[in-house]
Design a protein around this nucleic acid. Structure first.
Length: 961
RNA sequence: GGGCCGGUAGCUCAGCCGGUUAGAGCGCACGCCUGAUAAGCGUGAGGUCGGAAGUUCGAGUCUUCCUCGGCCCA
C-alpha cells in the first residue's frame, strides 16, 4: 500500500465543523407559501402588526379599488405587490403602515353581467324590478370581492382582509351621497345638457364601450346656406355643407370652417346637360368651398364648368352669419346661424364647411361651448325613441330610425322629410348615398344616434377664477409624484378637461340624491339631506329609489314643487370619494393619505377623480404623494390580449414558481415604464431567487448552533470581518434609501449584488477554511460567525418586503424560539452601528480585491495548462510596484484571502511572463505549485505536513483538542 | 392627429452636472472543485447605447427630426 492510499484511508471529515441546516436548498414555494399563509392567519399577523406599531407614526397607503369583476390579471398583481412592498418596508422602517384594501363595486360592467344572467333566465332587464336588479348586482360584486380577496392574499399581500372597504357598503354609499351634497350645497353642481350616444331601440344612453362599429348606408346631402348679411364680395354667394345625417338639419345652429384651410368663391357657368334629369345646381350660383374639395363638389353637383372667382380668406368668414336653410318653414327656423372657426374641420371630405348641431355631436357641442354660446339655445330635437319633438318644428313625430319590428334600425321618416323640405326650399345642391362605418349598439345591433339630454355637471371653472380647476392645480403642485413626470401629465389634463359630467342613466350605482325645484336649481336643505343620508345609511342606495319624495322633503317643502333626480352618479365619483369614507372615516387611518399608487392610466382616472372630489370639498388633495407604474406587456412589448394569445396570469406563476418569484419580478423591474413578463424573464427571477436562497442557506448552515456569546468586540475583529461590517453599513444605507424612495429595483440590486459578490463569492469562500477547520473557540472562527450573524439578521429583513415568504421561512429556521408566534414581519430594519463605517478600510479592501482578481486570473492560466486544479495546489507571488498596494496587502494572510496554500508580496520587477490585468496596472502575479504535502484535513499544501498523520500544524492542534 | 413617457449586452438594470478602451447581476460557453453539491468558485464571449442630422475640442448623456412601443385623449 502506498502512502497516498494510506492518506485516503484516514478520513478527517468528522473532525470538521461543517455547516448544517434544515433550510432546504429547493424551496418548493407553490406548496410552502400556502402553509406560511395559514400560519400568518392563525397567529393573526395583521392584528399583531397593528398592535406592535400602535404608537408609531402612521403611514397610510390608500388602496385604489380594483373593479369587483373577474379574476386577477397581471396588472392587478403588479399593483398590489408594489403596494405591499411599500407597506412592508414602511412598517419595518418604523411606521405603522396600515393597509386597508378595497373594491369598486358599482357600474356598467357588473350591470351587463347581471343583465346577461337575467337574460339567461329569459328575463329582460325591463321586466326585472329595479330593486331586484340592484340586489343581483350587489351579490355579483360580493362574489368577486371574495374571489379577488383570496387571489390577492395568495400573493402575500398583507392588509385588513377581514374588514376591507367597498363602494357598495351602505355606509360608503351614504358618504358618497353626502360628498355630492357638499358639491351641490356649495353651488358647484349644475344641470346642463350634452349630446350622448343614445340607442332609440333600447331607449337608453350608451357608454363608449357599449358601441360597436358596423357598415351603414347613409343618405348624404350637400346643403346651401345663404348669408344673412353677406360679407363684402360674397353678395349672393352661399356656403355649402355636407352631411351624412340629414335628420340633424333641424338641429343645426352653426356652420364651422377650418381656420387653416384655403377657401375660394366658385361661380357655376354650366351644368351637365347629358343627364336624364335636371341637376339642382344652376348656372350663376356662387358657392364658397374649400379649394381642396371643390372638385368633389363640382362632380357631386353635376357641374360642367365653373370659374373660381377669387380667394375667400377665412378672415372674411369670421363673424359672418348665415340663414338656416329651413328659414320660413313652420315658423321655427328664423334664428341666425353663425360661422364658427373650428380646428376639427378638415379638407379630407365634404366641403370644408361643417354643419354643426350641438345636440347631435360631440365636436359640435364642444365647438359651441368653446365659442361661449349658451346651451339654452341648444334644442332637444329628438326624444328617447328618436322621434322629432316639437323643437323640430314641422317634423314632429318623424323618427330617425325604425325602432320596432322587422325593419328595426332602418331609416325612419326623418331623413326623407327633411330632404323633401330642403328640396322644396331649393336649399339642396346634391344628394347621395354613402356606406361607412357607423356606431351601433352592441346589444341590439341597431344604429345609434347622438341626442341631447339633460345631465348633471360639476363646474371646473376657468384658470385664474379660484374655482375647482384652480384648487386642483394648486393641489397638484403641492403633491410629490413618482416618477416626477406624472405631475406634468395630470396638470395638463386638469388644465384642459371639461366640466365633470357626473350623471348616468343607469341602475347600479349611487343615486344623485337631489331634488330639483321649479327653477331648475337643486334644493339645498340640511334637514332634507339628513333624512336622505339616514335612510341610505340604513338601507343602502335603494332607499332613495324606494322612498316617496314627500318622506324626504318633509313638511317644509311641497312635493309637487320638486322633481326627484333618478340618475345615478358616475362611478368615478364613487371611487373619488374613497378618501372620505375610508381614509377619513376609519379610525385606523389618517387623512390625507401619504401615498396613492396606481397604474399610469389613473392620471385620468382615480388620481384625478379623488383630487377633484377632495379639492371641491376640502380644498386640497387627499394624498401627499402619487406613485404610478406602467403596464404589463408580453416579452415583445405588446399588450396582453386574448386575441394575441399572449396572456400570462399571476395564478400560473404562483402555481408553477411561487408568489415570491412574481414579487421578485415586480421588484426588480423598472415600474416607471411598462414592464415585460414572460418565461425567460420569470426564469431570471427564478435564477436570482435560487442564488439568494442559497446565500441565506449558507448563512443558516454556518450559524448552526451559534450563540450570542460567540460575539467578538468590533475592535478585535479581523480586518476582513471589519470590512464586511463596513459593507453591511453601506448596503443598509443603500437599501433603506431605496425603499424610502420607492426604488425597489435599487433595493433588490443592492441586496442581491451584496449577497452574491460580497458574501457568496468572497466572504464565505475565504472563510470556509476558518469555519470548517478552525477550533470552534478560535477567535477568527467566532469573529466570522459573529459577522455572519449580523449579516443574516440584516439580509433577511431587507429581503422581507420583497420575498415575505422566503424571508419568513429563513427567519424561523434561524429563530426557532419564534416558531410559536414570531415573524420576520414584526421586526424592524436593524440599526447599523455607524462605527462600522470605515472608508479608509474599504479603500484598502478595494485594492486587495483588485489584486485578488489578478491572482484568480493567474490561477486560471495555470488551470488551463493543467498545472493545477484546486487553487490550494498553488502558491502565488504578487509583484506590487505601488507602495499603497503593498501597504494594503500587508498584515493579511494573503494565502487565506486568495485560497491558495502560499502567498507572498514583493516589490521587485516582475518577469515578463508574470500574469497581469490591464485594469490593475501595478500588479503582476506568478504562480507556482505549492511545495509540500496536502493536509488530509484542510487540503492546504504545506511543507509542514508529514506522514503518517498527514496534517498541518493547525489541524493537528484542532484534532488533538 | 394631440398630451405624456420610453427604446443601453440574450434578460433585468447602472451610467451623477456631456470627458479616457460603456458597467453590474443573471443567463450562455469553457474550466475548476466535490466538505454550500439539482450547490459553490473562476475565466470568457456578447453592445455601431432604436435611426438620422446638429451643437461641441468631445454625446449613451444636450437639440431637432424620424422610427418603434406604451398610457391617456381626439
Amino acid at each position: 500500500m502506498s502512502d497516498d492510499a494510506a492518506n485516503k484511508a484516514r478520513d478527517y471529515r468528522d473532525t470538521l465543523f461543517l455547516p448544517q441546516t434544515d433550510f432546504p436548498m429547493r424551496a418548493g414555494l407553490p406548496k410552502k407559501e400556502p402553509q406560511i399563509l395559514e400560519r400568518w392567519a392563525e397567529m393573526n399577523l395583521y392584528r399583531r402588526l397593528r398592535e406592535e406599531a400602535k404608537d408609531r407614526k402612521p403611514f397610510v397607503l390608500h388602496d385604489g379599488p380594483p373593479y369587483a369583476n373577474g379574476h386577477l390579471h397581471m396588472g392587478h398583481a403588479l399593483n398590489k405587490v408594489l403596494k405591499d412592498i411599500v407597506v412592508r418596508s414602511r412598517q419595518m422602517g418604523g411606521f405603522d403602515a396600515n393597509y386597508v384594501p378595497g373594491w369598486d363595486c358599482h357600474g356598467l360592467p357588473i350591470e351587463w353581467k347581471v343583465e346577461e344572467a337575467f337574460r339567461g333566465q329569459g328575463r329582460k332587464k325591463a321586466d326585472v324590478p329595479p330593486s331586484e336588479f340592484r340586489t343581483a348586482c350587489r351579490e355579483y360584486a360580493q362574489k368577486w370581492v371574495g374571489i379577488q380577496s383570496d387571489e390577492f392574499r395568495r400573493l402575500g399581500i398583507e392588509g385588513d382582509w377581514d374588514d376591507p372597504y367597498t363602494t357598495m357598503a351602505y355606509d360608503a354609499e351614504a358618504t358618497i351621497c353626502a360628498e355630492f351634497m357638499k358639491f351641490a350645497a356649495s353651488g358647484q353642481v349644475y344641470r346642463g345638457s350634452k349630446p350622448v350616444m343614445w340607442s332609440p331601440v333600447e331607449q337608453t344612453a350608451l357608454a363608449e364601450a357599449e358601441i360597436e362599429y358596423h357598415e351603414h348606408t347613409s343618405t348624404t346631402i350637400w346643403v346651401r346656406f345663404g348669408f344673412r348679411e353677406a360679407p363684402k364680395g360674397l353678395e349672393g354667394a352661399e356656403v355649402v355643407i355636407w352631411t351624412t345625417t340629414p335628420w340633424t338639419i333641424p338641429g343645426n345652429r352653426a356652420v364651422c370652417y377650418g381656420p387653416g384651410l384655403s377657401y375660394g368663391l366658385y361661380e357655376i357657368q354650366e351644368v351637365r346637360g347629358d343627364l336624364d334629369f335636371d341637376p339642382w345646381t344652376k348656372p350663376g350660383q356662387r358657392l364658397v368651398l374649400a379649394d381642396a374639395l371643390a372638385d368633389e363638389v363640382k362632380a357631386a353637383g353635376f357641374v360642367e364648368r365653373w370659374r373660381r372667382v377669387e380667394d375667400v380668406p377665412t378672415a372674411k368668414l369670421k363673424g359672418a352669419v348665415l340663414d338656416h336653410p329651413l328659414k320660413g318653414f313652420a315658423g321655427g327656423y328664423e334664428f341666425a346661424v353663425p360661422l364658427l372657426s373650428g380646428d376639427h374641420v378638415t379638407d379630407d371630405a365634404g366641403t370644408g364647411f361643417v354643419h354643426t348641431a350641438p345636440s347631435h355631436g360631440q365636436e359640435d357641442y364642444f365647438v359651441w361651448i368653446e365659442h361661449g354660446l349658451s346651451l339654452e339655445n341648444v334644442p332637444y330635437t329628438v326624444d328617447e325613441t328618436g322621434a322629432y319633438t316639437d323643437e323640430a318644428p314641422g317634423f314632429t313625430g318623424e323618427r330617425v330610425f325604425v325602432t320596432e319590428g322587422k325593419k328595426t334600425g332602418r331609416d325612419g321618416g326623418a331623413n326623407k322629410a327633411v330632404v323633401a323640405e330642403l328640396l322644396k326650399r331649393d336649399a339642396l345642391l346634391a344628394r347621395g348615398r354613402l356606406a361607412h362605418s357607423y356606431p351601433h349598439s352592441w346589444r341590439s345591433k341597431a344604429p345609434v344616434l347622438y341626442r341631447n339630454t339633460p345631465q348633471w355637471f360639476i363646474r371646473m371653472g376657468r384658470v385664474g377664477d379660484g374655482g375647482l380647476r384652480d384648487k386642483a392645480l394648486k393641489a397638484i403642485s403641492e403633491t410629490a409624484f413618482y416618477p416626477a413626470s406624472g405631475q406634468n401629465r395630470i396638470r395638463t389634463m386638469v388644465e384642459g378637461r371639461p366640466d365633470w359630467l357626473v350623471s348616468r342613466q343607469r341602475a347600479w350605482g349611487v343615486p344623485i340624491t337631489l331634488f330639483v325645484g321649479k327653477d331648475g336649481e337643486p334644493l339645498v336643505d340640511e334637514a332634507v339631506n339628513r333624512r336622505i343620508l339616514k335612510a341610505i345609511r340604513e338601507r343602502g342606495a335603494d332607499a332613495w329609489f324606494d322612498t316617496d319624495k314627500s318622506v324626504f322633503l318633509g313638511d317644509a317643502h311641497d312635493p309637487a314643487d320638486y322633481e326627484k333626480v333618478e340618475d345615478i352618479l358616475d362611478v368615478w365619483f364613487d371611487s373619488g370619494s374613497t378618501h372620505a369614507f375610508v381614509v377619513e372615516n376609519r379610525k385606523d387611518l389618517t387623512w390625507p393619505a401619504d401615498l396613492y399608487l396606481e397604474g399610469s392610466d389613473q392620471h385620468r382616472g382615480w388620481f384625478q377623480s379623488s383630487l377633484l372630489e377632495a379639492c371641491g370639498t376640502r380644498g386640497r388633495a387627499p394624498y401627499e404623494a402619487v406613485l404610478t407604474h406602467g403596464f404589463v406587456l408580453d416579452p415583445q412589448g405588446r399588450k396582453m390580449s386574448k386575441s394575441l394569445g399572449n396572456v400570462l396570469l399571476p395564478e400560473e406563476i404562483t402555481r408553477k414558481y411561487g408568489a415570491d418569484i412574481l414579487r421578485i419580478w415586480a421588484a426588480s423591474a423598472d415600474y416607471s415604464e411598462d414592464m415585460r413578463i414572460g418565461d425567460e424573464i420569470i426564469g431570471s427571477a427564478v435564477d436570482a431567487y435560487r442564488k439568494l436562497r442559497n446565500t441565506l442557506r449558507y448563512l443558516l448552515a454556518a450559524l448552526d448552533g451559534y450563540d450570542a456569546g460567540e460575539a467578538v468586540p468590533y475592535g478585535e475583529l479581523p480586518d476582513l470581518e471589519a470590512y464586511v461590517l463596513h459593507r453591511l453599513n453601506a448596503v443598509d444605507a443603500e437599501v433603506r434609501a431605496a425603499y424610502e424612495a420607492y426604488d425597489f429595483k435599487a433595493a433588490w440590486r443592492a441586496l442581491t449584488e451584496f449577497a452574491s459578490q460580497d458574501l457568496s463569492a468572497f466572504h464565505f469562500d475565504v472563510r470556509k477554511d476558518t469555519l470548517y477547520c478552525d477550533a470552534p473557540a478560535s477567535k477568527e472562527r467566532r469573529a466570522a460567525r459573529f459577522v455572519m450573524h449580523e449579516t443574516f439578521e440584516r439580509l433577511v429583513r431587507w429581503l422581507a418586503p420583497i420575498c415575505p415568504f422566503t424571508a419568513e421561512e429563513a427567519f424561523l429556521v434561524r429563530h426557532p424560539e419564534e416558531a410559536e408566534s414570531g415573524s420576520v414581519h414584526l421586526q424592524l430594519f436593524l440599526d447599523t452601528d455607524e462605527n462600522w463605517r470605515d472608508d479608509a478600510l474599504a479603500a484598502r479592501w478595494s485594492r486587495i480585491r483588485a489584486v485578488r482578481r489578478v491572482v484568480t486570473g493567474a490561477l486560471e492560466v495555470e488551470r488551463r495548462e493543467k498545472r493545477i486544479g484546486a487553487s490550494l495546489e498553488a502558491a502565488v507571488l504578487v509583484h506590487a510596484s505601488d507602495p499603497e498596494t503593498r501597504k494594503a496587502l500587508a498584515k493579511h494572510d494573503l494565502a487565506e484571502l486568495f485560497i491558495t496554500s502560499g502567498a507572498a508580496v514583493t516589490e521587485g520587477t516582475a518577469p515578463a511572463e508574470a500574469f497581469r490585468l490591464s485594469e490593475v496596472p501595478d500588479v503582476a502575479v506568478e504562480v507556482r505549485k505549492a511545495p509540500g504535502r496536502k493536509c488530509a484535513r484542510c487540503w492546504k499544501v504545506l511543507e509542514e505536513v508529514r506522514p503518517p498523520e498527514e496534517l498541518c500544524a493547525r489541524c493537528h492542534e484542532v484534532v488533538e483538542a
